[in-house]
Simulated scan of single mutants.
Amino acid sequence: MRLLMLGGTEFVGRAMTGAALERGWDVTVFHRGRHEPPDGVTALHGDRTTEDGLATLATGEWDAVIDTWSAAPSVVRDAARLLKGRVGRYVYISSRSVYAYPTGPGLDESAAVVEGSKDDGQVAYAEAKRGGELAAIDAFGDSALLVRAGLILGPHENIGRLPWWLNRVARAGRVLAPGPRDLPLQYIDVRDLATWTLDAIEQHLGGPYNLVSPPGHTTMGELLAACARTTGSDAEFVWTSPEAILKAGIEPWTQLPIWLPPGEDHDTMHQGNVAKALATGLHCRPVAETVEDTWTWLRSMGGQAPQRPDRPVVGLAPETEAAFLDGGH
């Protein structure tokens, strides 16, 4: 299988590239040259946002292309148009953020989506991903596969969500644990995302697929317990009600990564319908494996995960946590 990977050197792209190489695929990575691509690929350089930035892709044929672009949809449009007729299938790694908010629990791929345009420049994330979908569909029609990923965790994460929790739990002491303890979580390990996507290429799948674990694949309590076991920490988890956390002005998702209190936001992020992906072979590894492998990688990085420059740094400042806990919580 001949695969063209647009990107391929960080987090999701890296996982896709690595999984394809493990299958013996012939992989071409098109990237800006800021990071070294994995051994065994053909590397092409270019900046998609500049004039003639796609020049090195003017020739060549591939069975599929995977595109993880998250910004201006016009960039996806230009790549898809250039590759039309020379690539069998266009795989766009989209997001469940394309659904019109609030999505409510249990909605599938038929749910209403936000407005978007393949010709848009810089727009908000949800509109950008929807515009990217439309760009892929415009050029490839039924041969466009739209992978609507949910929360993505795992080794090489460059957002910092699971790395923050691992480092925080490893420091031990009293840890603010956002409740309820049995709050269900829904996410996808980046390697399971890669495996399903490559399988989907082999199955010639097209159209939209929600790509995240089944609802309740783990819970907040199980996730933090896995962090403690993996890091060997004797941290004391101070389980705290959502009401107390919100009243203190502590922000879900950003200051307390992964966590969202029960309600519309939680239903949207952690209660999605993935029956379609499960029916086509989606397998999700246990949370303990994701946590353990992320910790192993994080330690190899000296405990410091890379940070995407276009995303805010996540996590609760130690002094904010201490002030909250010292206040009697």
Rank of each mutant, 00 (worst) to 15 (best):
T290F: 08
E319H: 12
R32L: 04
E133D: 10
R285E: 05
N158Y: 08
I66G: 07
G272I: 07
P163A: 10
V147T: 03
T230N: 01
T195P: 01
A277I: 07
A144Y: 05
A248R: 04
E157M: 11
E61A: 14
T56I: 00
M16P: 00
R161D: 00
L151F: 08
G53T: 02
W164M: 03
P208N: 06
V287H: 04
G154K: 07
L185F: 13
E157I: 05
A58V: 02
L6I: 15
T195I: 06
C284S: 14
A19C: 07
A277Q: 05
L246D: 10
E10K: 14
A275Y: 01
G141F: 05
G121Q: 05
D142W: 02
A144H: 06
G40Q: 08
L146Q: 08
A177M: 05
L183I: 04
R34F: 02
L205P: 01
G272K: 00
E22N: 10
T197F: 05
G281D: 11
S143Q: 15
L298T: 09
A80W: 08
G131Q: 10
K118M: 15
H204F: 05
S110V: 07
A244S: 12
L134N: 03
V123Q: 08
E109L: 02
E264S: 12
A149N: 06
A79G: 03
E202L: 09
P105N: 10
P178A: 13
D234W: 01
I137L: 13
D142G: 13
G281K: 12
G116H: 08
T50M: 12
T294V: 05
T28L: 09
L176S: 01
G24H: 12
R89Y: 02
P306E: 11
G60H: 11
Q307Y: 04
M1L: 11
D108F: 03
D199P: 00
L4W: 05
E36A: 15
R299Y: 00
P257N: 03
P163R: 08
A317R: 14
V29D: 12
Y99D: 04
T56R: 13
H35E: 13
V169I: 15
T320N: 09
V212G: 06
D142N: 11
A58M: 00
D78A: 14
P105H: 06
P37S: 08
A72L: 00
T50K: 14
A275E: 15
F140E: 00
A15K: 08
V291D: 11
V114W: 08
D189H: 12
W62M: 06
E292K: 13
G216A: 06
W165K: 06
Q122C: 01
W295E: 07
R171W: 06
T195K: 14
E222W: 01
L185H: 07
W259F: 00
F11M: 10
L211D: 03
A72F: 00
W259A: 00
G328E: 03
L57M: 05
T17V: 15
R130V: 09
G24I: 10
P180D: 09
L183T: 04
M1P: 11
D26E: 15
R161K: 11
R23H: 03
A279Q: 13
A317N: 00
S70P: 03
A170M: 10
E133R: 03
T230L: 06
R148I: 06
N210H: 14
A275R: 15
S74L: 12
P309D: 11
D52L: 02
R81L: 14
A275W: 04
L278W: 04
G303M: 11
T296R: 15
